[in-house]
Amino acid sequence: MPETRPLQIQYLKAACSTCSVLELCLPIGLTGPEVERLDTLIVQRFKVKKGTALYRAGDPLRSLYAVRIGSFKTCVLSVDGREQVTGFQMPGEILGLDAISTDLHACNAFALEDSEVCPIHFAHLEKLAQELPSLQHNLNKILSREIVRDHDMLMMLGNMNSDERLAAFLLNLSQRLNMRGYSSKDFVLKMRREEIGSYLGLRLETICRGIAHLRDRGLVEIAGRNVNIQDMEGLKQLVVGCHRPLR
C-alpha cells in the first residue's frame, strides 16, 4: 500500500500450500487444486515492521490480509484522539474485514511486532469464491466468527467485573496460541498493558491490580510480558457466564 512502501517493506513470493498456518487460515478445508487457485491471488506477501500501519481508517478496500507471521492490533481513534483497541490478531487470522460493507477501512491496523502478511485482492477473491463454493463457505464462516466475537466482547463488557475480563482475555490468548502449536500455559504478551486495558474497557491501574489479584489467588503469574498460567481450571471458573468456548 502507498503508505507502507517508503518504510522499505520486503516483498516475497507466497505459497498457501506450504504455509505453516494453512489449517487456520482462509484455505482451511479446501482441496489441493483449490488451494493452488487461491494461491494465485497472492502475488507477493510482505513484511510489516513493528509499529507500522498495515492500513488506516478511511483507506480504500483493496485486499484482505492473512497474518502469516507476527501479530497486529486493530484500533479506532475518538474525536479527541484517544485510541480504542478493538482486537488483536495472530497468525492464521484475517485483517481487513471491516472494509467490506463500505469499501473503506473503519479502523487502523498496526503491527505489534515485526510481522508478515499475505495480501488477497478482494475483488479477485470475490470472483474466485463464486466459482468455489468451499471458499465462499470459508468466507462466510470467517465473517460469522467476527460477529460472534463481537457478541462475546459485549457480554464480557456488560456482565464481567475487571478480574473476570482479564481472566477471559488470558484464556482467549491461551486457546488461540494452543491451536497454533504453542504452549497454552506459558506465553509472551505482544501488546502493552495499556492496550489490554483499552481493549477490555479498563484503566491501566485496574489492569495492574487485576494482575496482582490473579497472582494472589495462585491462578496466573505475569512478570513483565511473560505469562505463566498456574491454575487453568481455576482461571476458567473465575470467568462467570462464559459457557461457550473462547474464540
Score class of each variant (00 low, 15 high):
Asp163Ser: 06
Val227Ile: 11
Val188Trp: 07
Leu171Cys: 04
Met153His: 14
Pro60His: 04
Leu38Phe: 03
Leu246Ile: 14
Arg193Trp: 11
Arg62Pro: 01
Glu205Tyr: 14
Gln130Pro: 02
Thr86Met: 11
Leu125Met: 07
Ser198Pro: 00
Arg180Gly: 07
Arg82Lys: 15
Asp186Ile: 07
Val227Ala: 07
Asp39Gly: 06
Leu77His: 14
Lys49His: 13
Leu214Cys: 09
Cys25Leu: 04
Val35Lys: 05
Cys242His: 13
Asn226Asp: 12
Ala109Asn: 02
Ser183Glu: 00
Cys118His: 05
Phe187Arg: 12
Gln130Trp: 01
Val117Thr: 02
Leu246Glu: 10
Thr86Asp: 06
Asp59Trp: 05
Gly224Met: 09
Asn140Trp: 10
Ile229Phe: 08
Leu170Cys: 02
Gln237Gly: 15
Tyr182Lys: 14
Glu205His: 14
Ile196Trp: 06
Ser144Gln: 15
Glu233Gln: 15
Lys47Ile: 07
Phe88Asn: 04
Thr31Trp: 06
Ala129Arg: 07
Met160Cys: 03
Ile9Arg: 06
Glu34Gln: 13
Leu202Thr: 07
Arg56Asn: 13
Val67Gln: 05
Thr40Tyr: 08
Pro33Leu: 08
Ala168Arg: 12
Pro245Phe: 11
Ile100Gly: 05
Met155Asn: 15
Cys107Gly: 11
Leu38Glu: 06
Val117Ser: 06
Asn172Pro: 05
Ile42Asn: 00
Phe110Met: 09
Lys13Trp: 01
Leu200Pro: 08
Ser20Asp: 03
Ala66Glu: 05
Ser184Cys: 07
Tyr55Trp: 05
Ser20Glu: 04
Gly58Leu: 06
Gly218Ile: 05
Ala14Thr: 01
Asn161Pro: 10
Gln237Tyr: 08
Arg56Cys: 12
